Amino acid sequence: MPLPAETLMFAEAAAAGAAVARQGEAVEPALAALVDRLRALDPPLAFTCARGSSDHAATYAKFMFETRLGLPTVSQHPSLASVYGDPAKGARGSAFFAISQSGRSPDLIAATRAAHRAGALVTALVNDPAAPLADEADSVMPLTAGPERSVAATKSYIATLALIARLVAAWTADRALTDALAALPDALAVAWQADWSEALAPLAGARSLFVLGRGSTLAIAQEAALKLKETCALHAEAFSIAEVAHGPMTLVEPGFPVLVFPPHDVDRALIRPVLDTLEAAGARLLIAGEGALPMTGDPHPALAPIVMIQSFYRLANAVALARGRNPDQPPLLNKVTLTR
């Protein structure tokens, strides 16, 4: 079993800041052209289409599009075209965003082709701009994450979130968000050094846990839960903090771990009563930015989730090894998943 700093997951997650820095220059011309087309279209609706970690990034896109653009955003099932033959008639005049690291899954390619033929303005956010998915798009936005060999996506996920934030910043001409994105690589470097080791023992010894977020952080709660499953063989379920009281709360008993990613905007004030209830039930709360999970600086509210997931990836790598798992080689999984 490798040491924590010897895994591919460790090396690739540590490189996320460099990937985001490369992205800033690499996408600028294509981003400006895309924003011109989106503004001219003025779509009444946006679609996202993705699976796995990319679909969690789509959750972040939905939050950003709806709160900052006022643009209703729908997650389209990738199999509508490949299995059910849906011609995507409702996509005409919309903005369609296909999100993928590999750009090679047949279902996603079929869904993107159907949306394009139906009259949507299609954008592919993909790590490999030469992938088949790019051939179906009007615009291709490269993630610039570089090669990623570990099965667990890390730097490519962070690069996707950063690219979505860049798109929104440019579309809305938000100078504060644009400036914060310029500082994001340095913030990610600091976040990678954050000491979350006090959470190692509670997670390494857990049988299951909740991972909670709300609004801007729901996407990273989903991503963190997936990473705990695939790298640590740890049953983790993601919920919105607004939803956990609607049934799942009954599973909480003394010592039950709850990993919390609090939002850094107006939502933050709304989560405390739920956390108090969990604590009263005996839950072991692990809150990003508090106590055992320190967070340095005061990131832009829209980018705070990206900073938090960077610190989490280092923790997940360590938890996997503590549980006797190599995070680079989870059983039954492949780097590229081809689904229909």
Rank of each mutant, 00 (worst) to 15 (best):
A238H: 09
L234N: 02
I220A: 12
E279A: 15
A61T: 08
A292P: 12
A180M: 11
H300D: 15
F96G: 04
G324M: 08
V260L: 11
T178W: 05
A5V: 06
Q23W: 02
F312A: 06
P106S: 05
A14N: 12
D174W: 07
V126N: 02
P132E: 00
A236Y: 07
R268A: 15
R104Y: 03
N326E: 13
Y157A: 02
M1L: 13
T112H: 06
Q101G: 01
A124K: 07
P305C: 11
A21Q: 15
L143V: 01
T73F: 09
D55R: 14
V74M: 10
G90T: 05
P44H: 00
A131S: 15
I271N: 11
S216H: 05
V83P: 00
A16Y: 02
E25W: 01
R22E: 10
E136P: 05
V211L: 02
A183Q: 14
T59K: 05
G17L: 02
M64N: 06
A304F: 01
A18T: 11
S79G: 13
T144A: 15
Y313Q: 13
A114Y: 13
A88C: 05
A189Q: 15
P2F: 10
A16K: 09
F261Y: 12
M141D: 05
A322V: 00
T154P: 09
A206P: 09
A95L: 14
L69S: 13
L31K: 01
V20M: 06
F65H: 12
A292E: 12
L338Y: 09
L108T: 11
P142C: 05
D298C: 04
P327C: 02
R104Q: 14
A118I: 10
K227W: 11
P2Y: 08
A189M: 02
R22L: 11
A187W: 00
K229V: 03
A245H: 11
D267H: 14
L184I: 03
P254C: 04
A280S: 14
P72G: 09
A165V: 00
C49M: 10
